[in-house]
């Protein structure tokens, strides 16, 4: 399969001396749905900024659909569509005009640009708003307008920088469906997001960037297979009383009807074994869920704890050692 994006030895040092990228290599195949993840300040936006010509690189090379962005910038840019993080369309223009103007920047005739504008405004449920001044749109509509604008020249590679930030869950899911459809129609998509559930459900391959370096670059499946530990939350019908005997498992009572249990795949622990122990202890489970999504667990494991804003190390530390009785962890 051909390569949609090839980055080699990409470095960026800003004027104040801050080295945002320390020589990254990245390879995204055509047709892929690729996640680029990392904590704030890791280098994601700098990488995307270089792809989109908003940031100048210090060293390295970038090829988009086989076109070098230095040698062959017009062809490279013609293949690229960008949805930036911030709303950056003209706030005083009508929705339809924004798309038609964008088409013109890519060499589309006015007639074709109008046709495409209608196509994508309809697909993104914005056709009724075509004559609305863009600044009066709701946040969700503005996000969709950004996606429609990026697609008007029908790029082969679509880069989305946190496209669903601040969007309600219903709209987010409809945008996921739309992006999946765009990807299935052949457009390669690179996505950055802080919603790891979004990356896990949409993307086939993933790179994690930290301190200007790629620390993981693999398929989503391979990455998640490396996850050796999962934490589940169980809601119980009966009140939990310490001490609680769950030999081999790390458990902690959150409150009298909620229990947190850590399962380590490497130690051949399983939910079946756990439920057997629950039965033995007379615990009736009414519902269960992952404490965090699996990719989030992996992400936290890969990064230094100090990098995870709001990451509570204590909450992830075992309160009860395997084999020991669980204390009442609700107070912690």
């Amino acid at each position: 399969m051909s390569v949609a994006l090839e980055i080699k030895g990409l470095k960026k040092t800003y004027a104040d001396g801050f080295q945002a990228l320390k020589g990254i290599d990245l390879h995204v195949r055509q047709g892929d749905f690729f996640a680029l993840l990392g904590p704030n300040g890791a280098g994601k936006s700098t990488t995307l900024g270089i792809l989109t010509s908003v940031v100048s690189k210090s060293a390295g090379s970038v090829c988009i659909m086989g076109h070098d962005i230095d040698q062959d910038f017009q062809q490279a840019k013609q293949c690229l569509g960008v949805v930036p993080q911030e709303f950056n369309f003209n706030q005083f223009e009508k929705v339809f005009d924004i798309l038609v103007t964008q088409g013109g920047y890519y060499g589309l005739s006015r007639a074709l640009a109008k046709q495409r504008a209608e196509k994508y405004l309809r697909k993104l449920d914005l056709w009724d708003k075509r004559d609305t001044i863009s600044r009066t749109l709701s946040g969700g509509m503005k996000r969709r307008l950004m996606i429609a604008r990026a697609l008007v020249h029908e790029p082969q590679l679509l880069v989305l920088d946190e496209p669903t930030a601040g969007v309600d869950i219903e709209l987010r899911r409809s945008m996921w469906e739309f992006l999946t459809q765009v990807n299935e129609e052949g457009t390669t998509i690179i996505l950055t997001t802080h919603y790891l559930e979004e990356a896990e459900s949409l993307c086939r391959n993933i790179a994690i960037i930290d301190e200007g370096q790629i620390i993981e670059n693999t398929s989503m499946k391979s990455l998640l297979r490396k996850l050796t530990r999962e934490i589940f939350i169980f809601d119980t019908r009966n009140a939990l009383q310490p001490p609680l005997e769950l030999p081999g498992f790390t458990a902690r009572i959150m409150d009298e009807h909620m229990l947190e249990v850590e399962i380590e795949v490497g130690k051949e622990q399983s939910l079946n074994k756990l439920f057997t122990l629950f039965d033995g202890a007379g615990i009736e489970v009414t519902s269960m869920r992952n404490k965090a999504n699996r990719l989030e667990e992996m992400f936290v494991n890969l990064l230094k704890p100090s990098k995870i804003v709001g990451y509570d190390q204590a909450a992830n530390s075992p309160v009860v050692e395997p084999g020991a009785a669980a204390n009442d962890g609700a107070a912690s």
């Binding site: 989109t52 010509s53 908003v54 910038f73 017009q74 062809q75 840019k77 013609q78 690229l80 960008v82 930036p84 911030e86 709303f87 950056n88 369309f89 003209n90 706030q91 103007t101 964008q102 920047y105 890519y106 060499g107 604008r149």
Partner: peptide
């Protein structure tokens, strides 16, 4: 105004020389 609103990026990202 184009710089201030950020929509200069529409042009910088495009093949417009």
């Amino acid at each position: 105004g184009t710089k201030f609103q950020g929509n200069i990026e529409e042009l910088l990202v495009s093949p417009t020389a």
